[in-house]
Design a protein around this nucleic acid. Sequence first.
DNA 1: CGGTATTGACTACAGTCGTAATCGATGCGA
DNA 2: TCGCATCGATTACGACTGTAGTCAATACCG
Lengths: 124, 124
Amino acid sequence: MVASEKISDAELVVMEALWRQSPQTATDVAEEVAADRDWSVQTVKTLLSRLLGKDVVAAEQDGRRFLYRPLVAREDYVASESGRMVSRLFGGRVSPLVAQLAQQDQLTPEDIAELEQILKGLKS
Amino acid sequence: MVASEKISDAELVVMEALWRQSPQTATDVAEEVAADRDWSVQTVKTLLSRLLGKDVVAAEQDGRRFLYRPLVAREDYVASESGRMVSRLFGGRVSPLVAQLAQQDQLTPEDIAELEQILKGLKS
DNA sequence: CGGTATTGACTACAGTCGTAATCGATGCGA
DNA sequence: TCGCATCGATTACGACTGTAGTCAATACCG
């Protein structure tokens, strides 16, 4: 597994676009991203090259332009980030996190049902 | 509630020290922090003033030095950060987070037991 | 064929972060 | 009283971020 350096907030928006669909040209990504952020195409291109530099996306030439494609899976990113958060905020313990969220009423009934399922699965 | 600006990684280490015990002088914090990070006293002082600037710690003069004390409760910080993460990574849904962590084997048996307790509490 | 639009590359620039040295004031010990 | 230790404040500085302008090459339209 490669180091897969830190992805910044702005870069993450671009990654999300690529995760949603890839490969895409820079312009396509810019259009897709325009829904969330009011960025110029240039900005998106800069972010793409930074992501290239971080080895988290790859570009394959297609005529005059490039087609960009993520190199890390969203699941992998999400996994490492959530791990980081749990250890940063809760000393690696998961249940306090959930307790925390429960207290904030962030748990929907679906969440509760699904958590029960997860736990059931783990106990076997 | 004030905006309570973003606390960086390094700053968080200092906050943790203050949450553990406060008020403290800069030197005390530096000593306490020395266990985790090999920082010079200056570094800790810089972080403290940045935290002052962000209005997340307060300083009360005590003779020639200052006594520093957190202005935001750890629970509040943790609450907002974990909320931020959950929405950033999981579109606000909690159970995928737990599913994710479960898959990484980050759930200890204690976590599982406690999660069951939490769920039991919520169902009533 | 010539002009225009488009593309990636390079440059920019202010703000934040991590890490610290230095400075000016001041209090304390000898 | 005099020097030294210590304190907070100021300054430093390179890396990273957010946001974008500009440039040189090039492809496409007329």
